[in-house]
Amino acid sequence: MFPRGQYNPGTVMLDIKDLHVEIGGKEILHDINLQIGEGETHVLMGPNGSGKSTLLMTIMGFSGYTVTQGSIRFKGKEINGLPVNERAKMGMGIMFQRPPTISGLKLSKLLTAASGETKEEIEKYAKAVNMERFLDRDINKGFSGGEIKRSEVLQLSVQHPDFVMLDEPESGVDLENISLIGAAIGRLLDKDKHIVHRKKSGLIITHTGFILDYIDTNQGHMMCDGMIKCHGAAREMLKEIRERGYKECMECRK
């Protein structure tokens, strides 16, 4: 196993081959193939219900997502069967779309448990996403859509994941917050580093593409009916979807 941060054969971070996934006995993902290299950020698009979230949840290893065929290798290691926390320890991080509320668990306590950082360090991270007032609050309790996103980004930023998965990071976020969250996501993905020094990888689900203003992307993938139907440059693909909708995507209509 490659401990987090030490993987450097200069190539593949995530390698998914021939992946089939079931939820509750029904196959949702069929024959997914996807490779993400170190320092690369890929964008995942596709209509509602096409299986995008399912793919992220499967990669992270959540229960209920059963891999029936194929493999997921992360940093060169097959991770099928590894518990969620082992994957996190290897350097995976995920932003939850609708995280649960946990009564009595303060955001600051979770941040400490997740990072081992000092109180001062954690306050610094919190300030960067305007969350310092929430450190003493129960996690997600009464948080607005934007606050949940900021809290999720904050949790990721203390985790320092090498591979970041974001599920519609801009949804429910107002204009004021979008630049704050976008900038924080940019930092997570080493955006300010020159491409040759960039180590962090990402897989981002987006409909709007707003988030693309804050990150550099390499590739886009279009998911339809549980399959990845086409690949391309993320911006162009999104532009086409914006103008003509998913219906016009030839591959998806097949």
Partner: peptide
């Protein structure tokens, strides 16, 4: 699993949630 995704083991996550539950 939310807490496990932040790196806590299943036991740590369970204990953390219970501690929160008891926090009155």
């Amino acid at each position: 699993e939310y807490l496990m995704a932040r790196g806590l083991s299943e036991e740590e996550a369970t204990a953390t949630i219970i501690r929160g539950f008891l926090d009155v």
